[in-house]
């Protein structure tokens, strides 16, 4: 079988729940939050792959696992054929150059005491160890690329002297300066002002093309995924509900959860005002997920078997997968 550039296989991440001393004495069995519970993803080279879901669906945990910032409970992540969790420590350091994470919050992920220049040079110092003037050139070129131009006017400034959009550009420059192949962008525009979002999204699209990046874009915002991604997976409670191309997800959603998400988005069109028929209730705790299909307690089309059998993610049309018994 041909492997994708990034291949995620049966990935699981369970977080143990801290129990009180008494509870530990009384029962031995540990409880786990099953943040990610058996996820498969295939990203082809050059994909901008959207991972969409509500808070608590496990999307950020997957992102962190695929850049080796966390160890899985079970499963594999292969980047360009290299298994991230079987790689030796000194090798991993080299490999970090190839996989990078763009953080969500530009205020808390930048050191307020570090200038823009230092912040963008830092990853190079650790991962590249090039001569000083060469690094300076690389940093300047990257600042220019992400739209912090001319670089010398930004080099010595501190994050708090920048606007929100500019800070996000610094965070992106920091991730891309080491020329990675694979980048996880975790909610890259969630904290950016509305009028600046399009700038940042277009810049990311441009960067993807120029650097031939493979991107995993994590977002709760379907409209952002629609604008940026070619393939999309929708997550619910640690599992994938549906995977398909942008077109398949937005024009022919199969899973009732995807449909519910879509219906819930407030559309900026006052003529499209409708009574919202959204499922009642909220995403349950991953500590004790529902049996069978995890969406069944909220699903308007629930069948008897949904309460018992876990639906598998099955290909329903070429390239379009849904984990739903309605299509069996």
């Amino acid at each position: 079988m041909k492997l994708g550039f990034v291949e995620v296989k049966n990935l699981k991440k369970y977080f143990p729940v801290q129990k009180s001393f008494i509870a530990q004495l009384l029962s031995k069995s540990a409880e786990y939050v099953k943040a990610v519970d058996g996820v498969d993803l295939t990203l082809e080279r050059g994909d901008i792959y959207g991972l969409v879901g509500e808070s608590g669906s496990g999307k950020t945990t997957i992102g962190r696992l695929t850049v080796a910032l966390a160890q899985p409970t079970e499963g594999l992540v292969l980047v360009d054929g290299v298994g991230l969790f079987s790689i030796k420590k000194d090798q991993l350091r080299k490999f970090r150059k190839r996989v990078q994470l763009i953080y969500q919050d530009p205020m808390s992920s930048l050191n307020p005491k570090m200038t823009v220049g230092d912040a963008v040079t830092e990853p190079l110092r650790y991962l590249d160890r090039a001569p000083r003037d060469e690094m300076k050139q690389t940093v300047d070129a990257m600042l220019e690329k992400v739209g912090l131009s001319p670089p010398e006017t930004f080099y010595d400034r501190y994050p708090q002297e920048l606007s929100g959009g500019q800070r996000q550009r610094v965070v992106i420059a920091r991730a891309l300066v080491v020329k990675p192949d694979y980048v996880v962008a975790d909610e890259p525009v969630a904290m950016v002002d509305v009028s600046v979002r399009a700038q940042i999204m277009d810049m990311l699209l441009q960067m993807q093309k120029e650097l031939n990046l493979t991107v995993l874009l994590i977002t709760h915002d379907l409209a952002v995924a629609k604008y940026m991604c070619n393939r999309i997976s929708v997550m619910y409670l640690g599992k994938i509900a549906e995977t398909g191309s942008n077109e398949q997800i937005f024009s022919n959603a199969l899973h009732p959860y995807t449909k519910a998400l879509m219906a819930a988005v407030p559309v900026p069109n006052p003529r499209a005002r409708t009574e919202k028929k959204v499922p009642a209730g909220e995403i349950p705790s991953a500590l004790n997920p529902p049996a069978g299909c995890r969406f069944h307690p909220r699903c308007p089309y629930v069948l008897d078997r949904c309460r018992v059998d876990v639906p598998e993610l099955i290909e329903r049309e070429p390239g379009h997968y849904a984990a739903c018994h309605l299509y069996d």
Binding site: R197, P268, A272
Partner: peptide
């Protein structure tokens, strides 16, 4: 503002970027 926000409505739109910051 209206031309710069992405939407889930049918048809992939081109967004117009507003330069600068608030």
């Amino acid at each position: 503002l209206l031309q710069s926000i992405p939407t889930v409505e049918a048809g992939r739109r081109v967004l117009k970027v507003i330069p600068g910051s608030p």
